[in-house]
């Protein structure tokens, strides 16, 4: 059977990259007695699929991976079995069973919520808000293998709010159109004539979303729960 595992990645562990995180979970699962299913072949690997990789330096309260386990496993025990062998900063929040024909975590991600906390000097939030609302285009220069490419980040942003000492954004997180919060900030600050380098900020991913049959965003953890 397939289960979806929701976890957090906070504190100093934000410096762990995606590949290391995958290896971390493979080792963690091997430290438990959870009966994980492996691929066939000479070098079998655990059948698992991670949702949109989290950038190095970004914390998250809502990360997901799907895992194929033996039908005999008691799903209600998996969360505790993993939590006793987690490093400080990674906590398993929930485990739910996925229906037989569900889309895997990676393919189903459509959006992500981020909270950007300016913990030192605060930028002019009113100016940023006006800039966002009044600009139909916010350009970010992306370096690709074939050279520089202009991207209108506004097309990939679904929501934008000023909240307390920071910004809330909901951006495209699909594999084709993933917009990183850093790219969004660069484009917005440039348009507002502010120098992003002058500000220190933390980024917290709050959750990942997929679309339901009515084209509404639903948390990856709730779509099948």
């Amino acid at each position: 059977m397939k289960v979806r595992i929701k976890f957090t990645k906070t504190g100093i562990l934000k410096y762990i990259g995606h590949l290391d995180l995958m290896r971390y979970f493979q080792k963690a699962l091997r430290r438990t007695d959870i009966d994980v299913m492996y691929s066939k072949g000479f070098s079998p690997h655990m059948i698992m699929s991670f949702a949109q990789p989290l950038g190095v330096g970004v914390e998250s309260l809502g990360e997901y991976f799907d895992l194929e386990i033996a039908d005999t496993e008691d799903v209600s025990l998996i969360k505790d079995k993993l939590n006793v062998t987690m490093a400080e900063g990674i906590t398993i929040e929930a485990v739910c069973v996925l229906p037989e024909k569900s889309e895997n975590a990676m393919a189903s991600v459509k959006a992500a919520d981020y909270y950007i906390d300016f913990y030192d000097k605060k930028p002019d939030f009113t100016l940023l808000n006006e800039t966002y609302l009044n600009s139909s285009e916010l350009f970010y220069e992306k370096e690709t293998k074939s050279g520089k490419k202009e991207i209108n980040v506004k097309e990939f942003t679904f929501d934008f709010k000023i909240e307390e000492s920071g910004l809330f954004i909901r951006t495209d997180a699909s594999s084709g159109g993933n917009l990183k919060p850093g790219a969004f900030l660069e484009a917005l600050f440039k348009k507002a004539n502010l120098d992003l380098n002058e500000y220190k900020y933390h980024v917290m991913r709050q959750d990942l979303y997929t679309l339901n049959e009515n084209n509404e965003f639903v948390s990856l953890g709730l779509i099948y729960a």
């Binding site: 504190g11 100093i12 562990l13 410096y15 762990i16 990259g17 290391d20 080792k27 963690a28 430290r31 190095v56 330096g57 062998t85 490093a87 400080e88 900063g89 220190k200 933390h202």
Partner: peptide, 26 residues
């Protein structure tokens, strides 16, 4: 709580910041 004596802006520009975080299992 986990400390990091190297400020975030430095951690973000060096190679493999995970070399310096400790906190490993065991």
């Amino acid at each position: 709580m986990q400390k990091c004596p190297i400020p975030e802006e430095i951690m973000m520009k060096i190679d493999h910041p995970e070399r310096y975080i400790g906190n490993e299992i065991n």
